[in-house]
Design a protein around this nucleic acid. Structure first.
Lengths: 346, 346
DNA sequence: CTGTTAGCGCCTTCAA
DNA sequence: TTGAAGGCGCTAACAG
């Protein structure tokens, strides 16, 4: 019968022939500071190893009112396939500061959300990461006031909490730059404008795209609205092409939209990137599955999650503000290579 | 300044003019059992509400050596996109029994895994769910002995722990039945046989498929090996078709393989399901994105996660054994409708 | 029916 | 440099 886990600090102290105080200091790395004798220090360490001592975190929690645990409350982050990278990043970062993650999924239910938050607070998590699957503007539950909170992939309507979000505007600029480089700056259409309230990714991406195009002297050639999924995009593009559209450069607001676009173009014998160049957003696995591989401005989910935890743990939250994480370009083969106006050497 | 959270049971007792014992009994629903007077009971309840009392779970944990918390240790469940439904199911089920989930991702590193497990055990989680992204056979860390453990989407090499897994064999039979119904039982090829050790989904699916075909008097027409991803599948199918294969019914061992197959068939002008019927496994979102929608035998991730937690919480683990959760058919439009030998009424 | 009291295991002030 | 002792807030014997 191993694994009894009943070794207490007192046992260690007894074996080391010191008081629990001394043992505590040694085991908490305060031997130097407390000027514990080398002999005692050594004996305590040996005893701890000998007995495979592991401190009872629960007892420590009670005493210190701290738990080395961080709560992550989210709507659909775990469930929804693609955003779960945020959890990975958060978990990894938490491990980096010797913490564990506690998770709760509200699945969009405010009542469930409130319950989960209370349960976490009751367990005295050191802080809470409030995450949403899609980049959005949300109202933060009042219970969270006066607790350490960092928003992940969202901002609050009041602008009171520190937040970590993708830099959508810069991402939009990157998409624009990619097409400008290919000499297509004058012909850019956006696919996927969506009027969902509080979803802020789309408008910001378009804003960035417009600004970058403007710098190159171009205007956005047009915008095709559709919901952010494969079939709606497929249908919208089909209708658009039926109306005689003859696009050469498309910016899809996410990868699923791009997949719908691929399908519609392929059905008409239009070849990517020869006939039409496509740039997208998200950088999901789907981008690498499409044929040809999709060039996509990626959502840095893992890094977002990691930064949120880092900020929660180390920074002075009162001054944290909004952290914008860059969106890297996942280069595929869906953009036609830039025209060579002048061959240079070879 | 709200949210002080410093209301203790003693405060409630004082306000209600009873002892902490009485207050404790009332608040823990043991008033009846302990025969607390109606008056006292009422006063305690009122006082608790008045003060917005919330019990300090940490103190309770210390006293009862139980935490109403379940640890989920996994390799890539959170990170990897598609299996994260297991977390959702687990979280929901945990909520059903008033518990919270603690998660840790090892990302395949045994050392990290051991650390995470120890950290969870130190925090006295009531039990541990050990999950893997892909259905596999694994060696369970020895530290977990003598702790309540349920395996999720995996079985241990020793067969000692209770486990919850998809019923792959039945899933394979279901795929077979679907093609037999379409009158294609004699022409079934499997795409995606993979020799990865410890990955057990593939062999079991094939086994189920074979057995169902056999019942209808058919043999498997053939097997095309390839890794379980889009490009490898695409390449493998292309090579196979180049060799003159002329398939009419394909069972792809997962949805990504099916996507590669779709691409290869489409490139050659073969139409699904008119020329070729396709059935797949996983039932991921991808299946619904493909054109035509892919018929896929779904992995019941959410239910798997839920069952694991339920078993961990309620059952006598020593007798739990292996629970196989059915894989439902996600009906798409990738299988040709069955031939009508005889019209019946109308 | 209700109150007194002793810990759960740890950290930390205070004395020595 | 070390030890004794008091609690963190709660539960549950054990008296009354």
């Amino acid at each position: 019968m191993s694994g009894h886990d009943r070794v207490t600090l007192a046992d260690v102290a007894a074996l080391a022939k010191v008081s629990v105080t001394t043992a505590s200091y040694v085991l908490n790395g305060r031997a130097e500071q407390m000027r514990i004798s080398a002999g005692a220090t050594e004996r305590v360490r040996a005893a701890a190893v000998e007995l495979s001592y592991r401190p009872n975190r629960v007892a420590r929690n009670l005493r210190t009112a701290t738990t080395s645990t961080i709560g992550v409350i989210s709507d659909h982050v775990a469930s929804g396939a693609y955003a779960s990278g945020m959890l990975t990043g958060a978990a990894t970062a938490a491990r980096g500061s010797d913490r564990l993650l506690m998770i709760g999924e509200s699945e969009g239910d405010r009542l469930v959300e409130a319950t989960l938050i209370e349960e976490m607070l009751d367990r005295q998590v050191d802080g809470i990461v409030y995450a949403t699957r899609t980049h959005s503007r949300v109202a933060i539950p009042a219970i969270l006031q006066n607790h350490p909170v960092v928003l992940l992939n969202c901002v609050d309507t009041e602008g009171l909490y520190p937040a970590v979000v993708p830099d959508e505007v810069a991402g939009g600029r990157l998409a624009g730059a990619t097409l400008i480089e290919a000499g297509l700056g004058a012909h850019v259409h956006v696919i996927g404008e969506d009027a969902t309230p509080n979803a802020i990714a789309g408008p910001l991406r378009i804003q960035g795209l417009r600004s970058r195009l403007a710098e190159a002297g171009h205007n956005l050639a047009g915008v095709v609205p559709c919901a952010w999924d494969v079939r709606p995009a497929h249908a919208a593009i089909n209708a658009w092409l039926d109306q005689g559209a003859r696009p050469s450069a498309l910016v899809c607001l996410n990868d699923r939209v791009a997949m719908g676009v691929y399908q519609a173009l392929t059905e008409r014998g239009l070849e990517i990137p020869v006939d039409v160049s496509v740039v997208s957003f998200d950088g999901s696995e789907l981008a690498t599955w499409l044929q040809p591989e999709l060039t996509s401005v990626a959502l840095p989910f893992v890094e977002l999650g990691a930064r949120a935890v880092e900020i929660l743990v180390q920074a002075d939250l009162s001054t944290a503000g909004v952290t914008r994480v860059p969106m890297p370009l996942l280069a595929g083969a869906s953009v036609s290579p830039p025209p060579r106006f002048e061959a240079d050497g070879g």
